[in-house]
């Protein structure tokens, strides 16, 4: 009786397992298949060899991703710490206020930044009105990074905040009793204890930064192509699926290596915390 009911229960997972094999596992194999074949379906290495020409774009994407992640961390940590010092009601309001913009479509928010930063945009119109020379902001690497920080920084705040807010107050008080000043409490106690939050924040910012497209097209004026833009072009304009697949494959491996590296800093079990 009990045996059969647990068999039934396990069978509940069957439809999902089928779905998972067809729509999660098989598509990843498809990426590999397309990367190693030509348009006629014959085995070839030419898509992999062609990657050589995209090395610069890969390096730029990783570089921008690293800068975005570092800036996000520098902005997010003090923010998470500052709000965690206040009442619970204040904390939840602040987190809500931080997340509300994320519910808006990211395309329209990025487009709005374009209007703020462009040569005839809001900042430059204001500068001209009070008699200053306009500043060139749009179509610079700075604008691209600003767009990425804007879109992904909240994903750094959330995990850091959730670690800091669960920290035992007594530890901080103990540190103060033992003679730590405010700065030392942060560097010696709060910072080391929030490492798990920082690690998942880094992954949550770095992965979308490296793979983003659109932001660089709108705020960089097409001058600073990233991996995402290159993949998008292969699939939506040049229709070279094989080359697109090989670039995607490399991006996937890159992210995998990066996540495996980050995972060495934390010891999560298989069903580790859910994001957001």
């Amino acid at each position: 009786m009990k045996k059969s009911s647990s068999l039934w229960a396990r069978l509940c997972a069957a439809p999902y397992i089928v779905w998972m094999i067809i729509f999660i596992a098989a598509p990843l194999l498809m990426v590999a298949y397309y990367a190693f074949t030509d348009a006629a379906g014959n085995f070839t290495l030419k898509n992999i060899v062609a990657l050589d020409g995209y090395a610069g774009i890969f390096i730029r994407s990783i570089w921008y991703g690293i800068i975005t992640t570092i800036i996000s961390l520098i902005i997010a940590f003090p923010f998470a710490y500052a709000i965690s010092q206040k009442s619970t009601k204040y904390q939840s309001t602040m987190i809500m206020l931080l997340m509300v913009p994320m519910w808006m479509n990211f395309l329209i928010r990025t487009y709005s930044w374009m209007n703020i930063l462009s040569d005839n945009g809001i900042i430059n119109t204001a500068l001209k009105a009070i008699g200053f020379a306009p500043i060139e902001m749009i179509n610079t690497p700075g604008a691209v990074i600003l767009g990425m920080v804007y879109n992904f920084m909240p994903y750094m705040v959330l995990p850091i905040y959730s670690v800091i807010s669960k920290m035992d107050r007594n530890i901080i008080e103990a540190a103060q009793d033992l003679g730590c000043n405010k700065l030392k409490v942060i560097t010696r106690v709060v910072l080391p204890m929030s490492v798990p939050g920082i690690v998942s924040g880094i992954t949550m910012v770095f992965v979308p930064s490296v793979s983003t497209f659109y932001i660089s097209q709108k705020l960089g004026g097409g001058k600073y192509d990233l991996i995402g833009d290159t993949i998008e072009r292969q699939f939506q304009t040049s229709y070279n699926y094989n080359l697109g697949a090989s670039i995607s494959l490399v991006l996937m491996i890159l992210l995998l290596v990066c996540m495996a590296f980050m995972n060495t800093f934390t010891s999560d079990d298989e069903e580790g915390g859910i994001v957001i």
Partner: peptide, 24 residues
């Protein structure tokens, strides 16, 4: 194995998930 594959769409870059489904 099931849990690892389940985590893939959450961890992977959106663009790769999109491209892989399109290729399928």
């Amino acid at each position: 194995i099931i849990m690892t594959i389940t985590n893939i769409p959450m961890m992977n870059a959106d663009i790769v998930t999109g491209v892989s489904l399109m290729l399928l």
